[in-house]
Amino acid sequence: MHIKRVIPIAFIIISLLYIVFSFTVEERKMIGDVRGWDPGSRAMPIGIGFIMLTASVYLTYKERRSPGLEEERREPSIKRLVILTVLLSAFYILCFRFLGFIISTHILLFTLIYFNYQQDIRWDMIPVFSLGLLISTCVMVLFYSIGRYISRYLFLLGRKFDIPMLKGKIFTAGIPFVVLLIIFAILLLLLRKAIKKGKYHIPLVAGFTAIGATEFLFIVFKQIFWVSLVKGLIFW
């Protein structure tokens, strides 16, 4: 069935469920209010539920009459990519706290970029993909560790000799950033031919982009803005 016909029907169900829900809303009197007069907790949800129901019934009726909604011709490979993206994002959210920011973000980026470049998902891609993911993850962890080691060392040094400059964000985040950028650039330069074309073109592009983006996000959000990105498996 065409999506334009599915959506209004889905909304009929959603709004019916919503109406049922709104009648179960706990109608507690407004705190300490003896006077009453408050329309109450259910008034809005019920009203909105019925408007939503009316609109979706009307749209269902209308789409039913409208001719010429042929079955969409969507490439199955793109459908697979959409499903992969959704499933992987869900996996990302569920495993975020266990795997930690670095590993889970890296896996998400590498996998998506890899298959997006292939423009499809087939079984025969899996071996190269898995090996690429494994190697890339190791490089990622190494990369992270270098940055982490530098900022920790700088910080402890700054504290030991009481150098406020070394304790500041600009240095603890800036120096590792520059060092990692240089390493990244050297690697990029060394492997430039393999990245541009050849057998390992795609895994290399995916790996480099994933590692660079993950580390960049980590430095921006964790080291500059102190967002507590979960460490997970990488406990150091």
Binding site: S145, R148, Y149
Partner: peptide
């Protein structure tokens, strides 16, 4: 990786 784990 193991080295850095230990060191850091």
């Amino acid at each position: 990786v193991a080295f850095f784990t230990f060191a850091a």
